[in-house]
Structures are given as C-alpha cells and as structure tokens.
Design a binder for these strands. Structure first.
Lengths: 263, 263
DNA sequence: CTCAGTCTGTACGCTATCGCACTTAGATTT
DNA sequence: AAATCTAAGTGCGATAGCGTACAGACTGAG
C-alpha cells in the first residue's frame, strides 16, 4: 500500500463494503446499473432540497453531510466513506434531505439511478435489511454528533473527527486544511489551529499546509471522547458482515488498550 | 378540549398519527395485536443497549430519546410524540439503540410485540413506506439537534424545545421542571432558569413550579432559530398524509408571519 | 403551623470559544 | 528572484455557559 491517497486503482464496486456483502443474486440485478464516477474535492453530490437522481456507493472518496445555516455557517452532521451510501433519502422514501453532501476527500464511487434502487429495494430482502441497518448506524452517528457538540471540547471533537475520517481512508494522511476542518466541525478556523496544535505537541499528529498525518492513533483514541467508540461499536454491531470485509474493525480494535479494563 | 393534559379519554390507536393513516388492510393485521399502555413520567421504555421487546405508538404521551454519557450527564437527541414511534430499531433491523427512551410527559400509548411488527414490516408496502419516511423525519430532527447544539444560544434552544414539545401536546401547558428541561437540553439547571426568565420577561411564556405555559406562541416562533422550522417542514414534507390528520401543521403555520417574506 | 422537601433565583469566578485584526511562513506564479 | 496567494499562528477583549454555593419561595405532610 503506497502513500498515495488515491492511486489509480482499477475501481471495483466491491470496495464499497455494503456492496461487498450483498449476496450474488442481488448483485446481478444491481451491478449492471452501476456507473463509476470520480468525485472531486469540494464537489456537491446534492444540495439541500435537491431531488436526488442517484445513490452513491463510495469506494475511495469521503463525503460529509453538512447542514448549512441561513447565515451561511455550517456544521457537519455525518461522515460517509466506503462503509456507506450517500442518498439514503432515495430508498427511505423522502426523496430529498435538508442538507448538502460534499466531497471531503476526493476519490471514486459508483452511482445508481434512483429508479433502480427503489425498484430493487422493494423486492430485495438482503438489500433492504442491509440498507436499513446502515441507516441506523448513520442515525447513531448523527445523534452522537449532537451529543458531542453539546458536551465535549474542541480537542476531543477534533480527535473524533480525525478518527472517523481515518477509518474511511486507506492511509493515515488526510488532505485537509484547518479552514475546511473548521467548517466541518462548525467552529472557527483559529480554534482548529489551537486544537491541532495541542494534538501535535502531544505527538499524536503532524500537519503541514493542508495535510494532516496521524502518527499515534492509540494516542488519539486515548484522548477522544466516548462518542467515537459509540459510533464505531454501533457500526460493528449493526453491520458485522460488512466489518468482516473491512479493515477498520481491526485497525481500530488493534489499539483498544483502554477498553481492556471494561469489557 | 379541557385544560387537563391527560383527561381519561378512551384511548384510541388512531390518536397516533402514523396508525391513523395506515390503510384499512394493514390495520386489520396490526390492531388486534395492539396493547394499550399507560406511560408514567420518568419511566424508561428502553435503556441503552436493551433488546427491544415492543415498538410504541404514542397517543398522548411524549418520549425523549436521551443519550447518557459515561459520567452520567445526558443530552436529548430527539422528541417523539403522537406523530411517531419509539423503537425504530426493531424494524430497522438493529434491535437495540445506544440511548434511552424516557417518558417526558405522561400519557398513553399502544405497543406492539417486536415479532409482530417485523412480520408486518416485511410484507407491508404502505406500512413500510410510512415508517421509513417517519424515520427519515426523525433523522432530520437528530441532525438538526446537532446543528442547534453547535450554533445556537440556550434561549433559542429552549424555544425550539418548547415548540417541539408543544406540537406534541393538546394544551399549551407543559408539566416540566427546569431541572428536567436542563437534562433534556444537556445544560445546567441555572442556565434554563435564566433562559426561561428571559422568555417570561418577554411575555412569551409563564411558568411556576414545574408548569410551563406558552402564552405567546408567535413570539416564540419569532425568537426560535431556524432549526425548528427545518424539522417541522421536513415532517410536513415527508408525512403529508399524517399531517392531514394532525393538528400541528395548522397550529404551527397559523402563525408563520416571519415566513411570508421568504417563500 | 411547622418542618422538610422541592423548585426557582442569584451571585461569582472560571474556562472555552468567539470575533476580529494582524503576522508569519510555505507554495505558486511570473 | 520577486510577487502573490493560501495556510497557519498569535493576541486580545468579549461572552456564553459552567461549577459551586447559597438564599428564597412554594408545597405537602404531620
């Protein structure tokens, strides 16, 4: 595995963990309709209120769900990577959502026409079960974001954000400016400067002009608030089949030293 | 309509708006299994991680979904009343959730064994569509809670909370101490005292030892942040059939003066 | 009526974060 | 090499909410 974040790997739908665990029968219906797309940093997959045309199965890209306020400031509600789907409103039946989906880390994805997914969704047991469970996991991430915003320090929130992002990347380097991170977390850029400075002085991360590298993941995990673990555990619980094909149950529990005294 | 919050009305499943809009065919399957229950203030329908035994269709009760932190402090993630369901994890497939559901306002509900709902869920088009859309609305409420926690003042959050609660009650009086409200919002009791004091001085509410009465709803709506409207509009959009039988599309848009200049 | 319990009001120092202004330092272009 | 731009660091007063402590007020039980 090289250090390049997005090497020109031949894209493969199975890089998306949800697609990876779909039974063969479902795949036969779905795969012919999958359309590979390349997602650029900052691109919006949908705007608030847009009628969605496709659902996106991310493979190497990361997408943030952002709520943009009337005055223009924003807050991230959830992060989606190759563990998930962007556009749940399509099969949830709501058609639109009151938030934006923007590419946080560029990469690839496959998309599927809304009509196709809706049709499949109504006849497919495995697909439905999988998607509903994913949605519940997403729901957990959202509610935990609310909790974290209320109770935890910016340092902790940055840790959580870094870990959530890292779990969705093949490397431990994030291409991201402090300005953008601030947008995601809904705080000032200067606040991120300070928090990131703290983490760097503690030897947990290293950063430089739009690149953040996590150098001590266990250290981050020791400093993050409980929110991260809640989200991760729910993912593992709800999507064990997905986790089996995913690197991150491992990459994350390898270092669970602080857990050993609890369960 | 008397001023008593929970008069001994003969309970009726149709008081729950979701049940109210289910087609006859679905009802025939479901209603025989419905069990009326009386929910006491403070009672927990489930604890974090509990395997749910029933889904609850609230009629006159209000239930808060709370996340309880390791140190014991808590934050409300969503409010559920007769517009909704408690226990979505059952049909979402996740079985449990990492939060508590506690009764915020006592009243009645009907519950349904998990096995029944799961069985119905897999053969029922209308029921499924309805529940998925409801879940998306709930999801919006959660994400908006996250946004609100990040960006808005306690005064505004209290307004939002009051309006969300009011929408789920037949009266404009809430039986609720400042202490409990503080728990819901995840803030100090003294903070609520101050915020409530502000609203009272502004002539919007009146309160007294565990009773809050909204006396100027338009005033509250003028002071609340955008979050409330986002949630309400999503509800209306996702569940128009439900809204048709509900008082609150009306009760809430009657006073939408501040909207008239926008859309 | 009194007492205990609960609910609400107030005060004060503390801290995290904000908003704003400005500087420094890499990176990119010319 | 100089000019320009973007990213990151710093400083400072303002403020919202916290933690703590305590005081008043209403309620219900005896």
């Amino acid at each position: 595995m090289s250090t390049m974040p997005n090497p020109p790997t031949p894209p493969n739908p199975r890089q998306n963990h949800l697609l990876a665990v779909l039974p063969e029968a479902e795949c036969e219906h779905l795969f012919p309709h999958l359309e590979p797309v390349s997602l650029k940093l900052g691109e919006a997959l949908y705007e608030s209120g847009d009628r969605l045309s496709h659902v996106y199965f991310l493979t190497t890209a990361i997408v943030s769900l952002l709520y943009v306020m009337e005055n223009g400031s924003s807050a991230e509600i959830a992060i989606v990577g190759n563990e998930g789907i962007v556009g749940v409103a399509l099969f949830m039946g709501g058609e639109t959502m009151p938030n934006r989906a923007v590419v946080q880390s560029e990469g690839h994805a496959y998309r599927l026409k809304g009509s196709v997914i809706k049709q499949e969704f109504h006849r497919s047991g495995a697909l439905q079960s999988l998607f509903l469970r994913y949605t519940q996991a997403l729901l957990t991430q959202m509610s935990q974001t609310a909790v974290c915003n209320r109770h935890h320090t910016l340092d902790q929130q940055l840790c959580r954000w870094l870990l959530l992002s890292l779990d969705r990347l093949p490397t431990n380097t994030l291409k991201m400016t402090q300005e953008l991170i601030a947008n995601m977390l809904g705080v000032r850029r200067e606040g991120v400067t300070e928090a990131a400075g703290n983490l760097q002085h503690a030897g947990l991360i290293h950063y430089n002009r739009g690149r953040v590298t996590v150098v001590d993941r266990p250290g981050l995990e020791a400093r993050v608030c409980e929110c991260y673990e809640v989200v991760r555990k729910e993912f593992c619980r709800l999507l064990p089949d997905v986790i089996a094909v995913s690197p991150w149950a491992v990459s994350s529990s390898q270092h669970q030293r602080r857990q050993t005294d609890r369960d």
